[in-house]
Design a protein around this nucleic acid. Structure first.
Length: 458
RNA sequence: GUGGGCGUAGCUCAAUGGUAGAGCCCCAGAUUGUGGAUCUGGUCGUUGGGGGUUCAAGUCCCCUCGCUCACCCCA
């Protein structure tokens, strides 16, 4: 018999129960924290119209967007009477795409449902996104994002809250050595303006600046020069990027150097305000680092930008976000200010695994109720139902068989307790409860057993 | 899109061009009311696919597919 060789599309994964327990642990944690700050849930379709997504993510993002072939008559009409297709025609073959992130769908939702949405709209969204990227460590083609965004406010408190939430999530999950890097797009632009960089030259310069950590000052200098800037301008930019010290000092220094550049002044002002709010929100100073060379790739950011990184292991950023005051306007015709942050839950899980931050839970099932033989099966089923009614997660062994096999099953599945109801127990109206970790075994009434199990949860 | 590494049993990996193996896993038994340890036995393969060289190819050559890591970019 010919079998179908089982395989998965590149960059996608199955999540087996033991992994799902971990994933749900992380998702539950972030969800609870999101709700603590007053964010509400939202889901959107996997598919979006291509015209909604295109042009939002830059050239690179465009290439990485999974596009969906037209279907049915649409495709037939397109192809009818044509002998061949040329590369130029590919664009017409597709009309929809898998969502690339959660921010653009949010903007669409806000524009489409104005009458149902009260501003400021604070929503969280935990759903997969797709990118036609070449996978590598910590990078997948299908992965979950957890986003929070506050739409309809330009308050710096909203920006500060997203940073506070990042801090809260990462520290609650057990991360110790992380830093939240912040910067401001307006400030960056102001610095470039001060250095006399023309508008149309800024993107390559920003991309070069973003790589500072990786390629060093010499590398950045080389790339900026390659972008066609004079060496005088390059020096002015690099001098500012090289500034070190506490945030307040940096801000004072940069506003002094760039006197008279409005964008710099307002950027400094915004960052100062955000820092003030972070203090009120109780975010430790040493967790937040002002980095003038933080850029972030996505084109739509306009104000504060942030990303969180850990030093060990080296895996790139865990979260990232910022303010995007002009994105929603693309769908609405008038701008609505917004800011948000995205949690890279896949990387968070990978890193937590590597750092051993997960609690030792391998299954959610609490007891296996064994089935001794046909005459006792009814008692086992009845006890399992009693336990379930008390909220205990119980699995019943489906058919009477050797206890050995039943205990082996509990062991394999890491179920912590096994209940045995054999002829002896049945006669006495009691059950035997075995702790799989300690091998201790006690005889209890059914009620006592259930009370005991509930107590073990601590 | 560019460059490197690797494809042998379910998993991790062996095998100077000369009979495809080990450990783990799994199944059964030792042990007819009890898992993990030990012992015994057992199941498991078109060596990713195709072609070539050779008396002989897992091994050498070519093509192809897949995985993986890095770059670009990004979560």
């Amino acid at each position: 018999m010919a079998i179908i060789t089982p395989s998965l599309p590149k960059g996608t994964r199955d999540f087996l129960p033991q992994q799902m327990v971990k994933r749900q642990f992380v998702i539950k944690t972030v969800q609870e924290i999101f709700e603590l700050y007053g964010y509400e849930p939202l889901e959107t379709p996997s598919l979006e119209k291509l015209k909604v997504l295109s042009g939002q993510y830059g050239d690179e993002g465009e290439k990485l967007t999974f596009k969906v072939l037209r279907r049915g008559t649409g495709l037939e009409e397109l192809l009818s009477g044509r002998e061949e297709f040329v590369i130029k025609d590919y664009g017409q073959l597709v009309d929809e795409a898998l969502r690339y992130d959660l921010t653009v769908p949010l903007s669409r939702v806000v524009a489409m449902h104005q009458s149902d949405i009260t501003l400021p709209f604070k929503r969280y969204q935990i759903q997969p996104v797709w990118r036609a990227d070449r996978p590598q460590k910590g990078r997948y083609r299908e992965f979950y994002q957890c986003d929070i965004d506050a739409v309809g406010t330009d308050s710096r408190l909203a920006d500060a809250e997203t940073i506070a939430i990042v801090y809260s999530v990462l520290s609650t999950l057990g991360f110790k050595s992380f830093k939240i890097r912040i910067n401001n797009r307006g400030l960056l632009n102001g610095i470039l303006e001060f250095a006399g960089v023309e508008e149309n030259q800024r993107t390559p310069v920003l991309i070069a600046i973003d790589k500072l950590d990786k390629i060093g000052f010499a590398g950045v200098e080389r790339e900026i020069l390659a972008a066609g800037l004079g060496s005088g301008k390059v020096k002015e930019i690099l001098d500012i990027l090289a500034l070190e010290g506490p945030a307040e000092t940096l801000l004072a220094e940069v506003s002094m150097r760039c006197q008279g550049v409005a964008a710099v002044n307002s950027g400094v002002e915004e960052l100062t305000e955000v820092l003030k709010y972070l203090q009120l929100l109780g975010v430790p100073e040493d967790k937040v680092k002002l980095d003038f060379y933080l850029v972030r790739g996505l084109g739509y950011y306009t104000g504060l930008i942030q990303e969180s990184v850990i030093t060990e292991p080296k895996i790139g950023s865990l979260t990232g976000g910022g303010r995007y005051d002009r994105l929603i306007g693309k769908f609405l015709g008038r701008d609505i200010p917004a800011c948000g942050v995205s949690f890279g839950i896949e990387r968070i899980i990978d890193v937590m695994d590597e750092l051993n931050l997960f609690p030792e839970i391998k299954t959610k099932t609490e007891i296996l109720v064994s089935t001794f033989d046909a005459s006792t099966q009814a008692s086992s089923i009845a006890f399992a139902q009693k336990a379930r009614n008390a909220g205990i997660k119980a699995e019943t062994y489906f058919s009477a068989s050797k206890l050995k096999k039943q205990f082996t099953l509990a062991d394999r599945k890491h179920i912590p307790y096994v209940i045995v109801i054999g002829p002896d127990e049945m006669q006495q109206g009691r059950v035997t409860l075995k702790n799989m970790a300690t091998a201790e075994q006690i005889g209890l009434s059914e009620e006592e057993a259930i009370a005991y199990l509930l107590k073990q949860r601590h």
